Deep mutational scan, measured.
Amino acid sequence: VHTTPGLPSGWEERKDAKGRTYYVNHNNRTTTWTRPIMQLAEDG
């Protein structure tokens, strides 16, 4: 699994054909234009 540093585990930053940045979530095979926020791990 490709992961971009600074993004949550399983996420990758890519660019489309027009050079726009988007983000790929390999965990559930989705994409988004919005940069994901790293969540702190919570117990329980």
Rank of each mutant, 00 (worst) to 15 (best):
V1Y: 05
V1D: 13
V1A: 05
V1L: 06
H2S: 13
H2N: 15
H2P: 05
H2C: 12
H2M: 13
H2Y: 15
T3N: 12
T3R: 06
T3Y: 15
T4K: 04
T4A: 05
T4W: 03
T4C: 09
T4P: 01
T4M: 03
P5H: 15
P5D: 14
P5Q: 15
G6N: 14
G6R: 13
G6M: 13
G6C: 13
G6E: 15
G6W: 05
L7F: 06
L7H: 05
L7E: 06
L7M: 09
L7V: 06
L7Q: 07
L7R: 02
L7T: 05
P8L: 07
P8G: 08
P8F: 04
P8Q: 05
P8N: 12
P8I: 05
P8H: 02
P8D: 09
S9W: 12
S9Q: 15
S9A: 12
S9G: 12
S9D: 15
S9M: 14
S9V: 15
G10T: 01
G10P: 05
G10A: 03
G10E: 03
G10D: 03
G10F: 06
G10L: 02
G10I: 00
W11E: 02
W11L: 00
W11S: 02
W11K: 06
W11A: 00
E12S: 04
E12T: 07
E12H: 07
E12Y: 03
E13Y: 02
E13P: 02
E13F: 10
E13V: 11
E13R: 05
E13K: 06
E13Q: 11
R14C: 08
R14E: 04
R14H: 08
R14G: 03
D16H: 00
D16N: 05
D16C: 02
D16S: 07
D16T: 07
D16K: 00
D16Q: 00
K18R: 09
K18W: 01
K18G: 10
G19S: 06
G19M: 07
G19R: 03
G19P: 03
G19H: 15
G19L: 02
R20Q: 15
R20D: 07
R20K: 12
R20G: 09
R20T: 10
R20V: 13
T21Q: 06
T21K: 12
T21W: 04
Y22L: 04
Y22D: 00
Y22K: 02
Y22A: 02
Y23W: 10
Y23D: 03
Y23K: 03
Y23A: 03
Y23G: 02
Y23E: 03
V24W: 04
V24S: 02
V24Q: 04
N25G: 03
N25A: 01
N25S: 03
H26R: 09
H26W: 10
H26K: 09
H26L: 10
N27T: 05
N27K: 12
N27C: 08
N27S: 10
N28H: 04
N28L: 15
N28Q: 08
R29V: 04
R29Q: 13
R29S: 11
R29H: 14
R29L: 08
T30Q: 04
T30F: 05
T30G: 02
T30N: 05
T31W: 05
T31E: 06
T31R: 05
T31S: 12
T31Q: 07
T32G: 01
T32E: 03
T32M: 03
T32I: 00
T32Q: 11
T32Y: 00
T32S: 09
W33R: 08
W33K: 15
W33C: 02
W33F: 08
W33T: 09
W33V: 04
T34Q: 13
T34H: 14
T34M: 12
T34N: 12
T34E: 14
T34V: 14
T34G: 05
R35Q: 07
R35S: 07
R35A: 09
R35H: 11
R35I: 03
R35P: 10
R35K: 12
R35L: 04
P36A: 02
P36T: 00
P36V: 00
P36W: 00
P36G: 02
I37S: 13
I37L: 13
I37G: 11
I37V: 14
I37F: 12
I37W: 06
I37Q: 14
I37K: 14
I37C: 11
I37M: 11
I37T: 13
M38E: 12
M38V: 12
M38T: 13
M38C: 12
M38D: 08
M38L: 10
M38R: 12
Q39A: 10
Q39D: 13
Q39T: 08
Q39M: 10
Q39E: 13
Q39Y: 09
L40T: 12
L40S: 13
L40Q: 15
L40M: 07
L40I: 12
A41E: 13
A41Q: 10
A41K: 11
A41L: 12
A41S: 11
A41F: 11
A41R: 11
A41I: 06
E42L: 07
E42S: 11
E42R: 11
E42H: 13
E42G: 14
E42V: 10
E42Y: 09
D43N: 14
D43Y: 08
D43P: 08
G44E: 13
G44P: 14
G44R: 14
G44W: 11
G44C: 12
G44V: 15
G44A: 12
